[in-house]
């Protein structure tokens, strides 16, 4: 009974004639309607992008606060890592630096040679990408999509569309930027497609994320296609998003059924999609920047690949943004 009394007391805090407010059904109708309007405005009309950005700025400090415990755990863990472990790691890193230095020396001379040959052929110089190192803040909370949030955003000159790679391969693409963080859609997401090339024979295709598990599909390839198990897929670079020649995936399974004209090819991504903490955000100069450069340098304009159709790859995907002649397998 005491509780009953309390219950009454609680309700009498509001003015007596307006105790309950609008009925539950009215509230349901009102708020459902607003939600539906929001859903439509956000998904179809993209009106709320700026609202989302400003709200995200408010949430960012909270996110940092929430990241503190795990960060603290990692810091403590690193602090108490043993001497032996550090020595081992140091040695490994030194060896890697040595081998990479040798490779880099070769690369420098090759790059010089390449530039010289390009000048001889009077073609455009290879695109120079700029890159930013970012740290993964957390994995996307939506189980239906494959996304990660990284700690670099508009303030660090990141824009939607930039490619995200790690030491072993392509990870994904920046799809949404906030002032201090950005959202990276992984290549295993259902909505992301990436133009690839088979390293062995130069065959071009488009890889789609599978969505449910961490695999990629290579759809729309005929059943008699020359793809073997273990083939390496690299970025073809014809989309103007990903630099050419980065590892994407390895073909793990090929299935050819008599009832389908297409082969069913499943690939496993080479990048450490769910294991690394640091990634590299790579940007290829935009079409506008390239055009500006061409205007500044008019003698390059006449050799622009847009005006030389033989340089344009025969099977370019629809979303091709610029012609990148730095591909090793461009048909001549």
């Amino acid at each position: 009974m005491a509780r009953h009394f309390d219950h009454k007391l609680e309700q009498q805090q509001a003015p007596a004639f307006f105790v309950h407010g609008p009925s539950a059904l009215a509230r349901l109708a009102f708020f459902s309607a607003i939600s539906l309007v929001l859903l439509a405005a956000d998904s179809r009309l993209q009106y709320l992008a700026s609202v989302r950005q400003s709200l995200q700025t408010i949430i960012h400090p909270l996110q940092l606060l929430a990241n503190k415990p795990s960060q603290f755990y990692r810091d403590v863990d690193e602090y108490f890592s043993t001497h032996n472990h550090l020595l081992n790691e140091n040695q490994q890193l030194k060896q890697r630096v040595l081998t990479q230095d040798v490779a880099l020396q070769k690369l420098n001379s090759l790059a010089l040679e390449n530039d010289y040959l390009r000048q001889l052929l009077q073609t455009n110089n290879a695109l120079v990408e700029s890159s930013v190192v970012a740290e993964i803040m957390h994995v996307g909370r939506d189980l239906f999509t494959k996304k990660v949030i990284v700690n670099r955003g508009e303030m660090h000159k990141i824009a939607a569309g930039y490619a995200v790679v790690d030491a072993t391969g392509v990870i994904g693409q920046v799809t949404r930027t906030y002032p201090l963080s950005s959202e990276v859609t992984l290549i295993t997401d259902k909505s992301l497609a990436i133009p690839v090339q088979i390293e062995r024979n130069g065959l071009r295709a488009i890889a789609f994320g599978h969505g449910r598990d961490n695999t990629l599909d290579l759809p729309y390839l005929p059943a008699n296609v020359d793809v073997q198990q273990g083939d390496k897929l690299v970025t073809s670079g014809i989309d103007g998003v990903y630099p050419a020649g980065l590892a994407v995936a390895t073909v793990s399974h090929i299935e050819i059924t008599p009832d389908s004209p297409f082969a069913r090819i499943i690939c496993i991504p080479t990048g450490g999609i769910e294991s690394h903490r640091h990634v590299l955000i790579v940007s290829i100069p935009s079409v506008e920047a390239l055009q500006k450069k061409a205007m500044d340098n008019p003698d390059k304009l006449k050799t622009d690949p847009i005006e030389v159709p033989t340089k344009v790859p025969a099977k370019a995907p629809a979303k091709m943004q610029l012609n990148n002649t730095s591909k090793p397998h461009a048909p001549e």
Binding site: F31, S32, I34, S35, L36, V37, L38, L39, A41, D42, S43, L48, R52, L55, Q56, I59, G140, R141, D142, T145, K147, I149, R176, E183
Partner: peptide
């Protein structure tokens, strides 16, 4: 906002 999905899903 936290999940980064379309606005209004969780709200509804």
């Amino acid at each position: 906002l936290a999940t980064g999905g379309i606005f209004g899903q969780y709200a509804l």
